[in-house]
Design a protein around this nucleic acid. Structure first.
Lengths: 213, 213
DNA sequence: GTCTATAACGCGATAGAC
DNA sequence: GTCTATCGCGTTATAGAC
């Protein structure tokens, strides 16, 4: 909502290219957060920057290229965040809880990036090969991580770790979607679904430990 | 892809209004399934029907009105399906499994309706009051249903039923999203996530029964 | 070379006159 | 039902300014 001051061409030229690119991406994210991922408009971005629409094509080849940059950025920031939070914890329970909460918190704080990463709400947008490999890499890393945690907690053959891992993955995504849909403004820890990560973690830890009495 | 034969205005006039409305909705669904919910085009619908685009406004006030009709139709069909499948089962485990499988199968068979119902991929589309109440009604019914099943299975105070119900709801949505994203063409029962409903049901039934040894 | 603005094309939804 | 017109969109071509 903060209206950018219109700049003269001279003033704008003083900025360097990278600043401008970051600026475009930042404004794009703001608009996606306000009106939804699919509502992004190049005309609107250009208006905000005080330039004409075709001028944007100096920095991005197309609208999809902007989506692509944000898609990739999303996975990179997600990895960074998870790497910083999860390994801190001691017990498997705390690790699972941290993984769920980290996933949900990232989505709550970056709903624009998250929609772009998980749902695919833009017709015709297909990530570039490079961005696709970033995303597959991130998914594989998350997957291996969860599996290791669950193996640590496993005390019997009741449920194969691979299947427990996929169930946990589904739980994280489902909780996130429902939290975003019901309480998009509440931080994780509050709200009908935002407060459930401890319960969810408990559910999985118990499943790996349960004796088949 | 099946090209409709072009009809003369006279022939078209012989059809009654309701037939035409159903026709429009059916073609709209076909296109949404092919290219995504947001890719729906009134021009394309009109071409397929052998009429001009403005003529569609005789049957629907706007593009959003078409979305709205399908949104409502989705919840009605979903309710119908669940009502037919779940209560058949005997044990809580079988009921939970049937609920998960029914949810996933509906989404797999009607991905267009499901996207419209759950995700909200169309910028600016807000369901009408009438459709919104249909949807809230459906969600409330599902919720009460799951809660009753879980209460039947509960053997201790380890987890409040309301929270278990919401976790189960999240699991259903997460499994569905992941199945649609990974194996959209495989029926429920097959595929990495499509085969997990029995495990998921087992997870929840055990959680309600577990003694806190 | 790098960044602009201008103009124009084709497409979309939609409103109004007939 | 049609045809015409308006508006906004992403995109391209072109030409001028630094």
């Amino acid at each position: 909502m903060t209206q950018e001051k219109l700049l003269t061409p001279k003033q704008r030229r003083e900025r360097n290219r990278q600043e401008m690119i970051d600026n475009i991406l930042s404004i794009a994210r703001e608009m996606m957060r306000a009106d939804g991922v699919a509502a992004l408009s190049l005309n609107a971005i250009a208006r905000r920057l005080g330039m004409t629409t075709p001028a944007l094509y100096t920095y991005f080849d197309s609208k999809h290229a902007i989506y692509d940059a944000l898609f990739r950025q999303g996975f990179l920031e997600f990895d960074q965040r998870m790497q910083a939070e999860v390994p801190e914890k001691e017990t498997p329970y705390e690790q699972v809880k941290a993984a769920i909460e980290g996933h949900m918190a990232f989505a709550q704080e970056n709903p624009d990036l998250y929609q772009l990463m998980i749902q695919r709400p833009v017709p015709g947008f297909v990530p570039s090969d490079e961005s696709m490999s970033v995303s597959l890499n991130s998914l594989r890393k998350s997957s291996e991580w969860l599996q290791q945690i669950l193996e640590e907690a496993q005390a019997g053959p009741e449920m194969p770790v691979e299947e427990a891992r996929d169930l946990l993955f589904a739980m994280m995504q489902g909780l996130t979607n429902l939290h975003l849909a019901n309480n998009p403004d509440l931080p994780v820890g509050q709200g009908r679904f935002g407060k459930l990560p401890p319960r969810a973690a408990q559910l999985f830890i118990n499943a790996m430990k349960s004796d088949k009495s």
